[in-house]
Computed example of a mutant assay.
Amino acid sequence: MQKQELSYEDSKFTLDTYWLDPISDFDEPVDQPLAIICPGGAFKFHSDREAQPIAMKFNAAGIHALVLHYQLIEDGKAVYPLALQEMATTLNWLKTQSESHHIDLSKVLLVGFSAGGHVVANFNSIMLNPDERKKIFTDDLEVEPAANILGYSVIDMTLGWPKDEEWSMKISSDIYYWQAQEHLTKHGKPTFIWQTVTDDTVPVMNSIIYAQKMDLLGIPYEMHLFGSGGHGLSLSTYVTKHPDGGDYNVYDAKWWELCVNWMKLQKILPKF
């Protein structure tokens, strides 16, 4: 893993980069898909459990991975719109890296967990609509994502997370950014959604309403709601298991296998 620093205007942010090396046995290098991962952390921090373990899982599937350290609530700064501007900057930066790292720019995934899923859902809703994007990002978007993956994501900040409006106002004083589903249009990309119905932090209705809006707009999606398990499961395997014994449910770990199948359906990965 290597750190990469980027900036949007006068604001700096970092990426953790997990590049796949070309296979030297091949006559020519192969361009590979890429996943941009937004970990959760309640906009207070970026959870390591949803960073490197997830990135390496994508690497094992033949996908480059980046972990985006998007804007948090700190130093009096709000999350939005800066987090969306950082994502757009990252996507445009990929174009400068495509030849050296052999990236298939037509197969870029945005992956979000919990609070990081709110960033991804908002990007899918707001930033892929050219009319809305130009209000907060004046450059062209040179690379568009092909699809999204949302894990137990915050979608609507009025549905139970955050618990109080004061924290929502710190995330953004502009309520325009609170409800990602409200701004979703036909420009949105196919999305894989998973969560547990017993999530005691982010109510499962968040996932349901985003899938419902996608359904109304005719945007392809696949949703899996598991019958047990808490919030923040990450891989839901021993790899990301908390030492106290929580965050581990062998049944919910099936989400990754289901997600790989979905990526094949979306032609991000080959079917064979």
Rank of each mutant, 00 (worst) to 15 (best):
V143P: 03
F113K: 12
T198F: 05
E5P: 00
D174A: 06
L217S: 10
G246W: 04
P243A: 03
I175W: 00
S228R: 13
K271P: 08
H187R: 05
W19F: 07
A83Q: 04
S228K: 14
W167V: 05
L82S: 08
G218Y: 08
S228N: 13
C38N: 15
M87T: 15
G230P: 08
T89V: 13
G188E: 06
E182L: 10
M169E: 14
T196Q: 10
M127N: 00
E144G: 01
Y18R: 09
D131K: 14
G246F: 06
I268P: 10
D200G: 13
A83L: 07
Q4F: 07
N122D: 06
A146I: 00
P81V: 02
I193D: 08
A115K: 10
L91S: 11
D75H: 14
H224K: 12
A146P: 00
L110K: 06
L15K: 10
W93D: 06
D75T: 03
Q195F: 05
R133C: 01
F123L: 02
K95Y: 08
T196M: 10
A88K: 07
T240A: 00
A147F: 02
E257S: 14
V204R: 04
M157K: 07
P39G: 10
M157G: 02
M205V: 14
A42M: 10
H183G: 02
L184G: 02
P243Q: 06
T198C: 10
A55Q: 08
E74C: 06
N122T: 06
S106P: 05
